[in-house]
Amino acid sequence: MTLTLHGYWRSSAAYRVRLALALKGLHHDSVAHDLRIGAQRADDYRALQPQGLVPVLEGPDGPLIQSPAILEWLEERFPDPPLLPFDTAGRAVVRAMAALVACDIHPINNLRVLTMLRQDMGADEAAIRRWIGHWIAEGFAALEMLIVRHGRGFAYGDTPTLADCHILPQVYNAERFAVDLTPYPALVASAEKLRHAVPQAAPDRQADAG
């Protein structure tokens, strides 16, 4: 089975998928689309992803879009090792943690939003960093409480889950923009554990990094 991941090395959404692929031991080919020059808006790419966003995972079921849906597909198609708990309550908690990143932090800090803030709203870089820091801090404060409650090394329990696949890329973004992470020791520790477990998924290890 051939899997091809369309992404960009700094895309946190693509990073989520790389983490899940690595955790499941799945080989994949990579196709890079440089978001800085708008390569994701090319007509041939929009034929795969009508929004012109990364990532896309091409496989036996055709092109799959939106990283949460891709992660769920990977979990269903390749259930071993599992990235969701076996009990329904645990699965709900993990999905809530993932959604906290995918729905509440990442969308308002992604490249499209930051570009509009800069170009249309006149925000300078200091304002951009305050914006990013504010929304990351709000989300991470809630995640820290959940990880303290449910984590035992990873965000939920003692093995990686889909929550970790969302949290580590958001930590990477926070580090890029110098967000203070000292208030979130449990979150940072769980992210570091995953980072060391699958270093091949890291942004700076990708062929298009630079």
Rank of each mutant, 00 (worst) to 15 (best):
M1F: 01
L3W: 12
L5Q: 04
W9A: 00
R10E: 05
R10N: 07
S12V: 07
S12A: 14
L19T: 06
L23E: 05
H28Q: 08
V31T: 11
H33T: 06
I37Y: 04
L48W: 09
L48Q: 04
Q49L: 05
Q49P: 06
Q51N: 04
V54Y: 10
V56I: 01
P63E: 08
I65D: 02
L71P: 03
E72G: 00
E76R: 09
D80Q: 14
P82Y: 10
P85I: 07
F86T: 14
F86W: 11
T88W: 06
A89D: 13
G90I: 05
V93Y: 10
A96E: 13
A98G: 13
V101H: 12
C103I: 12
L114W: 04
M116K: 15
L117I: 02
G122V: 08
D124G: 10
R129N: 06
G133F: 04
W135K: 07
G139Q: 11
F140P: 00
A142P: 00
L143Q: 08
E144Q: 12
E144G: 08
M145S: 14
L146W: 09
I147R: 10
R149W: 04
A155E: 07
G157F: 09
G157M: 10
T159W: 10
D164S: 10
I167W: 07
L168H: 03
V171W: 14
V171H: 13
A174G: 05
A174P: 03
E175F: 00
D180I: 02
D180L: 03
L181H: 02
P183W: 13
L187V: 09
E192Q: 13
L194P: 03
V198M: 06
A201F: 06
Q206G: 00
G210C: 13
